[in-house]
Design a protein around this nucleic acid. Structure first.
Length: 352
RNA sequence: GGAGGCGUCGGAUAGUGGUCAAUUCCAAGGGAUUGCUAAUCCCUGGCCCGUAAGGGCCCCGUGGGUUCAAAUCCCACCGCCUCCGCCA
């Protein structure tokens, strides 16, 4: 969340940045207007409280007169009148504050949608076949490594069983990635797969991503990524600069409702309600140059894995219109899918 | 599920209605000072008004309540601990 002072002082440039992200810049004026109301009300409430405090302080010694008590009571009544107004305005203010996007970094290319993304790197040779290669899911089903038909019967769309060697292969790849990151000095963590709602807000997944998450009867959310518990890990703590950067690697299942993607990528165990993922998260100083260096380092870590596995990929720098509201800058890595004859997203790397 | 206890400034602690933003010790960061291996002293929560000086409000797990006045009394919730039961 941006500081309201920053918003007030940079309203014009912020609106421009929000427009570039293809979001509605009106939010800036709204938040500034409600902030004005809010501060006015804070003024009246604090003035009344001062009167109440001073009145009470004057009665410290001895038995106060009935008159003095009546006056104190009367002041309290007045306060009860305006305090709820302030509470209401504060709530409206906070709701709006959560909706103010972070501006993209200056070198992020402008674009309306995914067509504006820039390929910044290409690695590996795309394999050539003198036949039409099967898709990976066709191969897996044929070799009895994957069963989606029964999974769907049991668990609905986008469900799957892995079987036999594919079970071991998945764990091998996950372990490989995890060990790679531990080697690089990242602290490995397993994480809670359900988190309290405020972790979703605090990490910027809510309000925007509310539709995309599953909720429990106890108002917790199933995580869509280990990024949430890892980013919230130091919630309510004050960090020492000398302890930074703090590098963490998490491993967890990820749960995603995939609303609004009906019929999209239904084949090829690609867009799933549930999958396992290794996630890098780093806390570093609030310094753009330091953060960007780390951002590139994280990209490099992902690339090393793909290169070690000899998988051809390319790196996209996402344009303003195709990145999240909270993100400053974002890379996607897309890996070559021979059966589909195109690159598909397999990794994502951003800073906030 | 039942019974009980606890929650105070980064950590540990004192504080049972006004003298409390709050005691003491430790840690960390900043500053001052000193030639004897480090020591001593000072400062360090958030917000609102104000160019500033300064003024004010809030902050004792969270939210309500009682009272002229709440860290202190009452209620609810959250968290932690102990015992019993249940489950495995």
């Amino acid at each position: 969340m941006l500081d309201i002072k920053y918003i007030r002082e940079n309203a014009a440039s912020l609106k421009k940045a929000i427009t570039a992200k293809q979001l509605n810049p009106k939010i800036v004026d709204e938040v500034i207007r409600v902030d004005g109301d809010r501060r006015k009300l804070i003024g009246s409430v604090e003035e009344l409280r001062q009167q109440i405090n001073e009145h009470a302080a004057g009665l410290k010694s001895g038995q106060p007169s009935a008159e003095a008590i009546a006056k104190g009571r009367q002041l309290k009544e007045k306060l009860k009148d305006i305090e709820p107004q302030l509470a209401q305005v504060e709530k409206a203010f906070l709701d709006l504050m959560y909706q103010v996007p972070n501006p993209a970094a200056e070198d992020v290319p402008f674009g309306r949608d995914e067509t504006g993304n820039q390929e910044v790197k290409k690695w590996g040779e795309i394999p050539k076949f003198d036949f039409q290669p099967k898709t990976h899911d066709e191969i897996m089903e044929a070799l009895d490594l994957l069963d989606t038909k029964r999974a769907v019967r049991i668990a609905g769309n986008r469900a799957f069983f892995t079987k036999n060697d594919l079970v071991l292969l998945e764990y091998a790849v996950l372990t490989y990635a995890l060990k790679h990151m531990i080697f690089k000095g990242f602290t490995p963590l397993t994480v809670p797969w359900m988190v309290n709602e405020d972790a979703m807000w605090g990490t910027g997944y809510f309000p925007w991503g509310q539709e995309d998450h599953y909720k429990t009867q106890d108002d917790q959310s199933l995580i869509g990524t280990a990024e949430v518990p890892l980013t919230a890990y130091r919630k309510d703590e004050i960090l020492n600069e000398k302890d930074l950067p703090e590098k963490m690697v998490g491993i967890s299942p990820c749960f995603r409702r995939e609303v609004g993607t009906y019929g999209k990528d239904t084949k090829g165990i690609f867009r799933l309600h549930q999958f396992n993922k290794v996630e890098q998260v780093v806390y570093t100083v609030a310094d753009e140059a330091v953060t960007r260096e780390m951002h590139d380092a994280l990209l490099g870590n992902s690339e090393e894995l793909l290169q070690a596995l000899k998988l051809p990929y390319h790196v996209l720098l996402m344009c303003t219109g195709d990145m999240g509201a909270g993100q400053r800058r974002k890379y996607d890595i897309e890996t070559w899918f021979p059966g589909q004859g195109k690159y598909r997203e397999t990794h994502s790397d951003s800073y906030f």
